[in-house]
Structures are given as structure tokens and as C-alpha cells.
Amino acid sequence: MPKALQYFGQFIAYALFALVVGYFATQPAYTHMDPDKALIKMSFSHAGEHLQECRRLTQEELNLLPPNMRRPMDCLRKRVALLIELELDGAILYRDELPPSGLAGDGASTAYRKFPVPAGSHHLVARLRDSRREDGFDYEQAAVVTLAPQQNFVIDFRPELGGFLFL
């Protein structure tokens, strides 16, 4: 093959390689979420009550224990699962039981959920039960929120700040 033709062939090969690298380094664009929607992101980590109430040991029971293990309270490690419910415009958006973490079930329950919803005004209610009660909820927060397109609306839960936080 003549030298000039060889160089031309090399040029074509390099150009094609550059074209592939240059194009796929940024294109085609990926649509992660509909631009007209907003995102409700619920995320929190919270430990529910213990499954049973702690019981104070009697003196006789304490005496039976080695001296270094005589804790006055006997607490079952396992915690209750949290019940979480989200309601959007009167309809249940999400309802789930969140089991405690850890092998012994004594850790915090965690939630991380995303809900793309149409932008606009919505009536949002968040409810959570973290006690041993059979029905009803321990925390509830309701608000009318106006979501802009692509807005990231965060629902957090901080009991020390009063419960649900709409951020």
C-alpha cells in the first residue's frame, strides 16, 4: 500500500476512534426523570420502642447474677417495626412496616424512598407509629405543598425536633 494511502488510513482510524470517544463521553443525554415532575424523597433513621417494656429485677434475681452483671433493668433487645404512611391528595402513596436493623432486631429502622409526582400543589400527610400500640399513629404531619418541576422535596423525621420535617 502506498505510504500516503497508509497515512490516510491511519488518519481515518484515529478520527473514527476520536469520534466514538468524543461522542459517547457526553451523548446521548440520559433522561433520569421527567422534567415536569417533582420528587418527594422520604428518608430517616429512627429506632422504635422496645417490643416489651423493661422490667425491674427483684433482689433475689439480682443475687443470682454475677456481681458484674447485676443490671437492675431487664430489657428485651428487640424493637417494634415502624409503621409509616404517606398520603398524597387523599390517596395512600406509601404504607409499609420498617423492621428494626441488626441481627437481634435492636437497631434503628431506616427508610429511603423516592416518589416522582407531578409538579404543582398537593396535600401531603405523613404518619408514623413507633410504639407498641395496635392502631393509630404516634406522629402525623400534614401540609399543602407546592412543588416546582424537578424540585427535590425531602421528608425527614427527627423526634427531637417534633417529628416529621418537610424540607
Partner: peptide
């Protein structure tokens, strides 16, 4: 972080 990326220019080699 207050806004969700919608249409993103993507590096398809890595992503």
C-alpha cells in the same frame, strides 16, 4: 441537591 437532575449529558463508557 434541592433540584433533581432531569436530562443529563452522560458518559456512557463509565455509566
Amino acid at each position: 441537591l434541592d433540584k433533581v437532575p432531569s436530562v443529563i449529558d452522560f458518559d456512557w463508557f463509565y455509566l
